[in-house]
Design a binder for these strands. Structure first.
Length: 810
RNA sequence: GGGCGGUUAGCUCAGUUGGGAGAGCACCAGCUCGACAAGCUGGGGGUCACUGGUUCGAGCCCAGUACCGCCCACCA
């Protein structure tokens, strides 16, 4: 064994071995019948591992490994999301590089190309999860475009159709002119942009005066159908009910009153353009106004824009502004910075426009999910996210399901020549419904990517078939994911599970920390602040990276810190070396828990205490505290105290000490394995009586036999502290003296020799404690255990003072 | 604009019913002995963002202020 632990080779070897031996698979190491199930949030098939994935993988792997060792039948199922827009975007870009468009290729060929691309280039993340040591059951990888999965998606759609929740409607949607599709509100990202606000005069139709309206998009004036003011706005009291003339098109439109107008903004008068603005659309519907559109699906002016047809919006805006200037109807223009909606994939400015789309109602479907959350049948962690999840469901707007894309699940909707709409799981089924010889045309749209994601926990287990997997592993236990997809994904899985199987898909949702760049900004490719997790894995090892990420995962937003990962590497190295010490001195000895000496009983008690603490933390999904506890039990207790204490006996060839040391090391390895799987398995493999791999070895059972000895050793630690600071030796029992001699080595170091400083410190402590206990209000009001603790402290300080030969007052 | 979180040592962060301010890294000093110099031991270093309040006692509870961040959002 080398003195310096080098993770790379060791980690790869174990990753391959574990998977090849089938130890990642569901059922491995199982000793009880309970199942423990986590479905990995399916990453985009086009994506690569980022820091959030790495943290989330570490969290889930700790839980899975812990449960596997506790004997559960664990299923941690991996897979990919087809990522509709995202994937189509990638392939389209590739086509563009070849001078092709998807339209030239045709739908069938485009989809074939996409599959082909996925075969060669996609699906890289699972390899990266393997490198992180994630014990996913890779043999069960699923893809949202697998045949079985597609069937599940269509079945789900038909089910919602039968419930009467799906409808088709002309509504305003977020239209991406680049992708030529509707996208949901949640796929729109707002970006700050510089813009110009134009103040435009709308003359009253009766020729008497005008209203001034502020707009950032003069081209949309052509589609104005009204001007609205706030009902309580005194300035416009007389204007309501009159008509104004829309510039350029010179159409007469009414002035209406609506509370959604913000009197403080601009002039307090809002032009109403239902075809191109979401707020205006709502106002228009409520007032029964027409909904003309002058911007087409490609973002340019359409045929209804008259002589401006075919122009870009910018050109059209200039023409409108010229028209206004000539007639002195352009009051002024001012710089204006505001947030503009853009497509999250291509960052093209979103065009709000009206189009015919398929929708799913959310009010009724969401109700059981809201109830489940209220009743805590599903719990979000932390609690603040639980409240957020409930309010998100309560406020959920109807879901726009259709996308005008080619990559995805095509809607199971067919139209007959006489206008009938048929919803069925397959063309055969649709044909059966339509009757003999009726021509059917399938709706070309595909479903929103998140529609299939909502089914992840069930469809990966074979739903809608009654598979053995579904029976055994549904409902699952935990979902761990990022904050921003609570609404997109987690809430929808809950309602889909309740709708289809009448049960929640999991009981706990972990919303993990967001890992920010070291400077506190978000990690993003565009900002150049991203850090590839494969980098610290290569440099410090997967164990160290897991440890570091878990250690910093305490708050909502954490800054990435390489220092935490380096600490993990230090820990792995320390463990490696202490194992080397024990192995070198324990040849031909088998592990046995037969502690005779105090330090042996102590370390066994300490490891058990750490086990209890760590289990408590993991049970509460507090990974940062658990990590810290593991560090201290390994470094401080096992290495710096226990190993030092037994060294002399090991060197003397004491077989009992060696046997117990091996046993204690074994127990420590078990405890550390979920966080540091590789280095622990590597050391484990060198233990003399190893029967199984550590990954499937039994977890530690509670063992309170040595609990009392944990406190007994504290006396030696106290004595060591006093000696090191002052050079004075405190009276100790025989066993304690032996440990003291081994750990402190008084013959080599005389301590700092600063008796006076130590006396001073202790006198201050005594004074403080005496003052507290002399305070009648403290003694009366403080809880009894606090007062008692104070008395004990006073007694201890007096004892230590006496041991140093000092009195309370100098 | 709304929601959530943060502000504690030079840096990154703990601090669990309110009861003597902590860890890791960095720094200084000593050890440098047959696991490990990626080691051991000790040490210096903090108005716990600010202002008020409750309390015998506040980093912790309450009210407010100021910064920072994340998420969400249809003020043209």
């Amino acid at each position: 064994m080398e003195p310096l632990y080098t993770p790379a080779g060791v980690e790869l070897r174990w990753q391959e071995t574990w998977e090849a031996e089938g130890l990642y698979a569901a059922g491995a190491g199982r000793r009880r019948d309970d199942a423990y199930v986590i479905a990995v949030p399916p990453p985009n098939v086009t994506g690569e591992l980022h820091m959030g994935h790495a943290l989330n993988g570490s969290i889930q792997d700790v839980l899975v490994r812990w449960h596997r060792m506790r004997g559960y039948d664990t299923l941690w199922q991996p897979g990919y999301d087809h990522a509709g827009i995202s994937t189509q975007n990638v392939v389209e870009k590739q086509l563009a590089a070849e001078g092709l468009s998807r339209q030239e290729l045709g739908r069938e060929e485009f989809v074939r190309r996409t599959w082909q691309w996925l075969e060669t280039t996609g699906r890289t993340i699972m390899g990266q999860f393997r490198r992180l040591g994630c014990s996913l059951d890779y043999s069960r990888e699923r893809f949202t475009m697998d045949d079985e999965y597609v069937r599940a998606v269509l079945t789900f759609f038909v089910r919602l159709w039968q419930r009467g929740w799906i409808y088709r409607a002309n509504r305003i949607v977020n239209w991406c002119p680049f992708h030529q599709t509707a996208i949901s509100d949640l796929e729109v990202v707002h970006e700050e942009m510089d813009d110009t606000l134009s103040y435009v005069r709308y003359p009253f139709a009766d020729g008497d005066g005008f209203l001034t309206v502020a707009t950032v998009r003069p081209a949309t004036i052509l589609a104005d159908v009204a001007v609205a003011v706030h009902p309580d706005d005194e300035r416009y009291r007389d204007a309501v009910g009159r008509e104004v003339v829309v510039p350029y098109v010179e159409r007469h439109v009414p002035v209406i009153a609506d509370p959604r107008v913000e009197p403080e903004f601009g002039t307090g008068a809002l032009k109403i353009t239902p075809g191109h603005d979401p707020t205006d659309f709502e106002i228009g519907r409520d007032h029964g106004l027409p909904e003309p559109m002058v911007i087409g699906l490609d973002g340019t002016m359409n045929v209804d824009a008259g002589d401006l047809a075919g122009l870009s919006q910018a050109e059209a805006s200039e023409r409108v502004l010229d028209w206004l200037r000539q007639r002195d109807q352009l009051e002024r223009r001012e710089h204006y910075r505001h947030a503009v909606g853009t497509c999250e994939r291509c960052h093209t400015r979103i065009e709000p426009l009206i189009s015919l789309q398929w929708w799913c109602r959310m009010d009724e479907p969401a109700a059981p999910a809201i109830a489940a959350l209220r009743e805590r049948r599903v719990r979000y962690h932390p609690e603040s996210q639980h409240r957020f999840a409930i309010s998100s469901l309560e406020e959920a707007p109807d879901w726009c399901l259709s996308r005008q894309l080619w990559w995805g699940h095509q809607l199971p909707i067919w139209y007959t020549p006489d206008g009938e709409t048929i919803c069925a799981v397959s063309e055969e089924a649709a044909r059966a419904q339509a009757g003999e010889g009726v021509e059917l045309e399938r709706d070309p749209d595909v479903l929103d990517t998140w529609f299939s994601s909502a089914l992840w926990p069930l469809a990966t287990l074979g739903w809608p078939e009654e598979t053995p997997e579904l029976r055994r592993y549904y409902p699952g236990d935990v979902d761990s994911t990022a904050r921003e997809i609570i609404r997109l994904w987690v809430n929808r899985m809950i309602w889909a599970g309740l709708e289809l199987l009448d049960d929640v898909p999991f009981t706990d949702v972990i919303i993990h920390s967001t890992v920010l760049a070291p400077d506190g900004r978000r990690m993003s490719k565009s900002l150049g602040t991203g850090i590839d997790p494969m980098q610290p894995i290569a440099e410090h090892g997967a164990d160290a990276t897991r440890y570091g990420l878990l250690k910093i995962s305490s708050t909502q937003d954490v800054r990435f810190s390489i220092g935490a990962i380096e600490e993990g590497r230090k820990l792995a190295n320390k463990l490696w070396n202490v194992a080397r010490l024990i192995f070198q001195n324990a040849t031909l000895v088998t592990p046995a828990v037969s502690p005779r000496a105090l330090e042996e009983r102590w370390i066994l008690g300490r490891i058990d205490a750490a086990r209890a603490e760590v289990e408590d933390c993991w049970g509460r999904f507090d990974f940062a505290t658990a990590t810290s506890a593991l560090y201290h039990v390994t470094f401080d207790d096992f290495c710096d105290w226990y190993a030092e204490a037994i060294k002399p006996r090991l060197y003397d060839g004491d077989k009992d000490a060696a046997a117990t040391a091996l046993a204690a090391l074994e127990r420590l390895l078990v405890l550390l394995h979920p966080v540091l799987p590789h280095v622990t398995e590597e050391i484990w493999s060198q233990l003399p009586n190893r029967r199984t791999r550590l990954i499937v070895s039994p977890w530690l059972e509670p063992d309170d036999r040595f609990a009392a000895d944990v406190t007994a050793l504290e006396r030696v630690r106290e004595a060591a502290q006093i000696f090191r600071r002052s050079g004075v030796r405190v009276e100790l029992g025989a066993d304690e003296q032996r440990i003291f001699a081994a750990v402190v080595r008084p013959e080599r170091s005389a301590g700092n020799g600063n008796v006076d400083a130590e006396l001073e410190r202790l006198r201050k402590e005594v004074e403080r404690a005496e003052a507290m206990l002399a305070n009648g209000r403290f003694v009366q009001n403080a809880p009894a255990h606090v007062v008692e603790a104070e008395r004990e402290k006073l007694a201890r300080y007096r004892r230590e003072l006496e041991a140093l030969g000092g009195s309370e007052r100098s």
